[in-house]
Design a protein around this nucleic acid. Sequence first.
DNA 1: GTAGGGTTAG
Length: 566
Amino acid sequence: MATTKPTQPLSFLLPNNPTNPKPSSSLKQSSIISLPKLCNSMKEVQQIHTTLIKTGLIHDPSAMNAIIEFSITQDLPYAQSVFQQTTNPTTFAKNLMLRGLSQSQFPLSAFSLYVEFTIGGFQLNKFAFTALIQACSRSKAVREGEQIHAQILKCGEMDAHLASSTIQFYVGVCGGFGIVPEHAEEGFRPDERTLASVLPSVSRLGALSLGKWVHSYAENLGMEMNVFLGSALVDMYSKCGSIDSAIGVFNRIGPLKRNVVLWNAMIGGFAMHGHGRDALQLFQTMLASGIQPTDVTFVGVLRACSHAGMVDQGLSYFKAMTEGYNVEPTIEHYGCMVDLLGRAGRLEEAEKLMKSTDEGRDVVLLKTLLGACRVHGNIEIGERIGNQLIDLASDDSSCYVLLANLFASVGRWEDVNKLRNLMKKRGVRKIAGCTSIELDSVVHEFHAGDMSHPRIEEIYAKLEEIRLELKVEGYIPNTSQVLADTGEEEKEASMYRHSEKLAIAFGLINTTPGSTIRIVKNLRVCLDCHTVTKLISKLYDREIIVRDQNRFHHFKNGLCSCSDYW
DNA sequence: GTAGGGTTAG
């Protein structure tokens, strides 16, 4: 871990450094040859390399290996030249070189070295094979990978590590085809790595009870809560809507054990839940504990600012990122910034920033800006961006829907119809809205106007009850996002069959009063569902947590954590 | 002494 390395330069250990009066002979041989492991830069490695040559210690194979080991990740050409100058490279050094090339920009270059080695009569071992099969994974070289797989089987080098790299190869190049396990292995015990690998799938599903099961499984087996498992759990709990449990896992990992990935996961968790201040406070704590932020950290920080509406803070963190922390902005950072400025209604600035990058025609950035135009009813910029989008991403239905929403909000029904016809002509279909809710480990899924649920009558009865109560409260349905130019009554009726309303009604019927309702939606929440959910949270005294396409909404006491911008 | 796992805009 980079943070455990000494930060001061190591040159004071070298003999020609005047600040160090001791001659090099006072250093044990074993200590100088292990120095490259402690190095922070190639410059230090080169200094040590020079010293090794001067003192003759370079003839010790482990000294050479240490130099190669450091430089394969930092300066591959350097490692290659050192390796070529070695008269009798050890197996270890050969394996390192294979690994270095397989992790380089041109993974298949490992194969030329492999050919060289085999001509020279070198027998490959499991470490060499791992590097080669990974090279095939990275470059999607199916035939080569299959041949390496055959060789591995022939020479009997297969073990658990190599098997997992081989599986990764097949999963990556053909979706796992051809490697279906024959049976679940008897006596097989998953370890922290296994669980850390399955958790991202649980996170994507938003299946909290499944994630909780994995967590308690780990605890029951007495597994060590390391940063890998910890980060995966923090992310899982965040993405499954249980930010408190995420905090619990984070806090239980000792401050000294926390690495930047774990901090990033927790900051990102706060961000997606709209807890901007918590995210920024945690970021400051991270800095105070001496952890260097990465580009991912700033994605979390900027996302936190945008989701919590902290525009000024966001702008100053973006500045600090590039000027103070030397982190180059990526497309993800620009995405956050366009969202941040767009939320504040600073649409011209958002567009200017977008155009100033190489990513001015990126579909996601354009969609972010168009979404902001819809929220702020800016038809001038919105129409321009929208038209650009439906050419650029002509098969993406959400672009048409966003633009149609904008037209509908200003009553331009003719344009809405034109868009609908264009979609039909181009064969683009709207993605159907779908909301799921999990009760007692069973996932119930609802689509708009769904009549298939066995308890659908009760659900519609509950919705009717809600509709009447909201009417008493003076609520007027907002039909601006209904894209059919029909009568108000028809529009209202169609809105009451939206999938999120069905899921919430089902949740109200089947959970104890006062308990939290969690639902997951595949698209963005519609404007009317958002308003209705706020009112339900107050009327029924329920906390309702909604995960939509890209963030969480916490509805409580008539308010939503997104401050009505999403 | 070498290899597998975790975090990333809308």
